[in-house]
Simulated scan of single mutants.
Amino acid sequence: MPTPAKTSTIQLASIARGLVEAQGPDALTMGALAQSAGIKPPSLYKHFADRAAILKLVEIEILNELEAYLRRETKGGTPKARLTAMAGAYRRFGRTAPNRYKAIYSGNAFNDPEIRAACLFSAQPLFEELKAAGIAEARMLPLSRTLVAFLHGFVLMEIGNAFNLGGSIEEAFDSSLETILREIA
């Protein structure tokens, strides 16, 4: 008769998430997870095929949280005001928990349909606001890509302390965002 599991997949995912938030995605190893869970590393394979499977769960959970956060924080009387608020919320999401933020956009969306679906889900508030702003269907994807690329790069540089040439980071963020959103009233 097999021994009962000491921990569940949900508990392990929660522990994995804690490791990522505390130390970043690179700190999540099978050994570190097993040690944190108080089990032997081979026991993890009853729940996960490999480290990538654990990171996938964490990434999808964070992308879902991002979607909810953007919806909750997007306010304003005009499409441009709402998009500006959304961009600020996105930036706060990354700055508030840098290690959590570093776990998203792993690049696995190209290979994994579940991560791709989570990426698209997290982008739905942006697509909805662009549509509400009257952006033509043909412009929505290019504009959303430009905005997300800017926000992601800006957040990564900011949490990595890469803005060290002087000047106001707030002014750089605001003027760049204004340039990207110039076609929106």
Rank of each mutant, 00 (worst) to 15 (best):
P4Q: 09
A32S: 15
E158I: 10
T74L: 05
E73S: 15
A103N: 06
L55G: 06
L19V: 04
A32N: 15
A87W: 09
H152M: 01
R72M: 13
I10E: 13
E59F: 06
K40W: 05
R51C: 03
S43I: 01
R100L: 06
M30F: 12
D174P: 05
E183C: 09
A172K: 12
G134E: 14
F110T: 12
Y101F: 12
R116P: 00
K56P: 02
L70V: 00
E171L: 14
A103D: 04
L70C: 00
D50R: 07
A162R: 14
L12V: 03
Y45S: 07
I169P: 11
S14L: 06
P2T: 01
V58N: 05
G88E: 15
F93W: 02
G160N: 12
E128N: 02
I60S: 05
E183L: 07
Q35G: 07
Y45D: 06
I62D: 06
Q11D: 07
M140R: 14
G88L: 14
D174T: 13
A68Q: 09
P125C: 00
F121M: 04
V148F: 01
A149K: 11
R145Y: 03
A109P: 01
G167C: 10
L33F: 11
G94A: 11
E21I: 00
L83V: 08
L156A: 08
G18D: 15
F173Q: 06
A85S: 15
P79S: 07
P25W: 04
L12D: 02
S43H: 12
K75I: 13
I15E: 01
E61F: 03
T74W: 02
T3H: 04
E178Q: 14
A22N: 05
A172M: 15
A133T: 08
G153N: 14
I104S: 06
S168N: 13
I39V: 14
R116K: 09
G88M: 14
L57A: 12
R145H: 04
T29W: 10
L141F: 04
I169R: 15
F110G: 11
A162I: 00
R71E: 07
R92H: 07
L33W: 07
L70I: 00
S168H: 13
Q124V: 00
A32H: 13
A32Q: 14
I54L: 10
L63V: 00
I104F: 08
I180E: 12
S122W: 02
N108G: 12
A103K: 08
G24H: 02
F48L: 08
P41F: 05
E65K: 05
E158T: 09
A97F: 05
I184H: 12
S8Y: 05
A133P: 12
G31R: 13
T3N: 06
S36T: 07
I169D: 12
I62H: 11
S8G: 06
A5M: 05
A149G: 10
R95E: 15
E158V: 05
L55R: 06
E137L: 08
A185V: 10
G166P: 13
R92Y: 04
I115T: 03
A87F: 03
S175E: 15
A133F: 10
H152A: 00
K80P: 01
H47T: 06
P25A: 08
L181V: 00
I104R: 09
E61V: 02
F150N: 07
L151K: 03
Y90A: 00
K75C: 07
A133C: 09
G76K: 04
E114D: 14
G18Q: 14
R82I: 02
I54P: 01
N99E: 10
E59R: 11
E178F: 01
T3E: 08
I60M: 10
